[in-house]
Design a protein around this nucleic acid. Structure first.
Lengths: 143, 143
DNA sequence: GTAGGTGCAAACAATTTGCACAGTA
DNA sequence: TACTGTGCAAATTGTTTGCACCTAC
């Protein structure tokens, strides 16, 4: 696992042990680009590592977010999604019918961040920009 | 309640009855501009209408969102916020420490909506754009 | 060997639902 | 009167936590 090593190194640097569970979670995120819920990640890992518990997935995603290895997204369905922090920064078009999402490369914050920090005296940590609606396929099927 | 009548009319048009609970919820949103969680709305109403149940608040907010009278916002803390659909469209700066929010009048979608609908073949229903960080006060206090 | 990590089960918080009764139209 | 709406309690969903055992280092 070539790419994975940089993540293991960063875990170690912060005093975290490299357990098989942590390896599996990172490998899963590397192998499956895009955002996934904790439940999805758990299901994917279980196919080749049946004994991992959902709690462990949550716990480790949480620490990986805290270390900046992983980014957490909150979508409108009340379920968090996670993706590797290395992925290009982007936002999403999310279909309310099939749940599929496409990327939007444009980020409004890139134009606003400086102005907001300065004029509003606000330290920006993270942001969300997601667009919900119906994709081409689902619109067709509903007619 | 002058302003409230237009909402009652729209409920009636769709075959919904005007119950005191529904009146109280709408009045609460009219009297308290901005977004509030279901729990907050329930607490506010209980001060002068002690017998309303939280379930009823949820149920009615849900139908009001479906009718377009109310808008639901999902913030990062996993609790939905609701505001009247008549309020000026805006987004938020949300402090991760004190939870207070300020409005941002700028909406990135106003510049992108047409392009996305056309180029991505996507029917836009709603969107989120919220910026999280630390407000001036909280940054001061943490030092 | 030892501290941190895991799995299990139980706890939690936000929200939804089934059901019998109550209240609007 | 008829049927929608309500309150209560219980169920559900996503996530967190306490605890005893396990394992990476």
């Amino acid at each position: 696992m070539p790419e994975a090593n940089q993540f293991f190194r960063r875990l170690k640097q912060h005093g975290y042990k490299i357990t098989p569970q942590r390896q599996a979670i990172l490998q899963c995120l590397l192998d499956n680009p895009g955002h996934h819920s904790a439940e999805e990640i758990h299901q994917i890992i279980k196919t080749h590592y049946p004994h991992i518990s959902l709690d462990t997935v949550y716990r480790n995603l949480h620490t990986m977010v805290a270390l900046g290895l992983v980014i957490a997204l909150n979508f409108a369905d009340g379920r968090n999604r996670y993706e590797l922090a290395t992925e290009e920064h982007h936002h999403h078009l999310i279909c309310l019918s099939c749940g599929q999402s496409e990327q939007i490369d444009f980020c409004p914050l890139s134009y606003m961040a400086d102005t907001i920090s300065r004029e509003r005296n606000f330290t920006i940590c993270k942001h969300s920009f997601e667009i919900y609606g119906y994709c081409h396929n689902c619109r067709q099927n509903q007619k």
